[in-house]
Structures are given as structure tokens and as C-alpha cells.
Amino acid sequence: MNALTAFFAALNNPNVPFIRYALFAGLMSSTAFGMVGGIVVVRRISYVAGAISHAALAGLGASLYFSEVHAVHWLTPMLGAGIVAVLCSWIIALVTLYAAEREDTIIGAIWAVGMATGLIFIAKTPGYVDAMSYLFGNILLVGRTELRIIGMASFVTALTVILFYPQIQSLCFDETYAETRGQPTAFFTLLLYTLSAVTVVLMVSTVGIVMVIAMLTLPAATAGLVARRLQTMMVLAIALCALANTAGLATSYYLNVPTGPTTIILSGALYLVTLVLRTAAKRLRRGM
């Protein structure tokens, strides 16, 4: 109980605004993560999201470099990551749709080349840049500007999913059939990849480039264990994601450990426990 009281006190403490920012960032981006995570899981494109998030390091590195060396200060790390993530998602989508190249080859290439580019930019940026913060997350990276971007992008992402829900559901369930219904499947594939790219970047600051993919897939996969409809899965995933973010922040504050890894571990534990419970419930029912 003391731990919770201390956490709430910290939330109200004007001297540590970053805890409040991290909480809001987690809660707001959870909407986008739950919805897009559901899509990524049922469409089985988590490896695409993985490539996009890792490649975003190129954008992070480039924005650090250009703002330091060429004084391009409007290019914040999050914006740079977002631009590169969206571009990479388009490359993967277009190659998958139109080129006769194997999807996994291009995904591997984007994944590694993106990270390599980012690391070189960081190495060439004068002064000390903590690459670890970007790779594994640091809640101190979330300021008011980031919070505003996260809020807006989450809202637009959620709105897009709600607006196009029947079309997205149809595409995810049976793409060929959607095409025979005259649905522009290439456009929607591009849209889904773009949404994944935008979403992934929203939590890059708090959980880091390497682990953000887990926040996209773990709550959605947990929800998928119990939900029988895509929309139920999305709503549940939003709740689980928000829960993991909040509990992760509180726990890490109490134990004085990094927030990102704590949040990821909690999400993974939630998934495992749900999986075990569901399997046990099924066996019990069959046994009766």
C-alpha cells in the first residue's frame, strides 16, 4: 500500500513531471497499440512491425546528428523516427505487393540497414549520446512536445481504424475475397503498414526500439487468447496495454529499475499466465 501511495504522491509532485508524462504517454498510446496490435497479430505481420521499429533508429540517429551538427532543431528524434518508420513501412508494403522479391529478405535488410545507419549517425554526433536510452527506452525522453505528438497520433490512428473497421476486418480475414468485392486491397495494405509504423514510434521513447514490438503484440496476443471477435480483441488489448504501462511505471518507480523492461516483463507475464489459465480451463472442460 505504501508503494502505491508513494507512486500517487510522485504523480502529483511537480518536481518529477516526467512520471506524469510517462503515465499519460502510456495511457494515450495504448489505444493505438491495442487496435493496431490486434490487426498486426491476426494479420501475422509482427515481423514487419519489428523491422519498422528497428529501422526507426536511422531516423532517431539522423535527427540527433542534424540538429547537433546542422542545427536542424525542428527535427526531433521522435519525428525523425516517425518519418523513417513510415518510409520503411511503405518500402516493405510496395515490395510485398508488387516486386517478385521474398518478403522476408526485404524485411531483414530494412531491419539491419536501418539500425546500422542509426548507429553511424549516433557515432558521428558530437558530444555524448546515450544510445542505450533509444534502444531500450527512457521515460525521461518524453517531454511536453512528445506528449502532444503521442496524443494526436494516437487519436488519428484510433479514428482511422474505427472509420475503416469493416474494410480492415474484411481484408485481414480474406484478402483475395476482399479484392473480388472491389476493395482496393493494395491501398488498405499500405494503410495498415503505415498505421503500424506510426504506432510503433509512439512508445519508442518509453520502451525503446528493441522492445517496442513486444508492446504491440503481447497485449493483443493475450487478448486473442480469450476474445472471439476482432473488435473485442482490440478493446481488451487496449485495456491490457494500459494496465501493463501503468503497472510497469509504478513497479519500476517502487523498485527503482528501468520502466521499459519492467513494462515488457509484466506484459509477457500477463500473456503467459493467460495462456496457462486458458489451457487449464480447456483441459478441465474436456475432462468433465
Binding site: P166, Q167, Y177
Partner: peptide, 30 residues
Amino acid sequence: PQYTHFDTRFPISVREVVLTGCTRPVFGRH
């Protein structure tokens, strides 16, 4: 179709599957 390319464990109801047969191409709900 002859072959069903979709994931048969996809979380969707029978009625929703039928409704995908009359989904608007770009915009609009059922």
C-alpha cells in the same frame, strides 16, 4: 473459392464472415 487462404482461427463470427460479402469497397459500414 476452392482454397481457403484465411486463418480458420481468425476471431470473427459467422454473421461477420457473411457480411464481408457486402462490405463497401472503401468507406461505409454495414
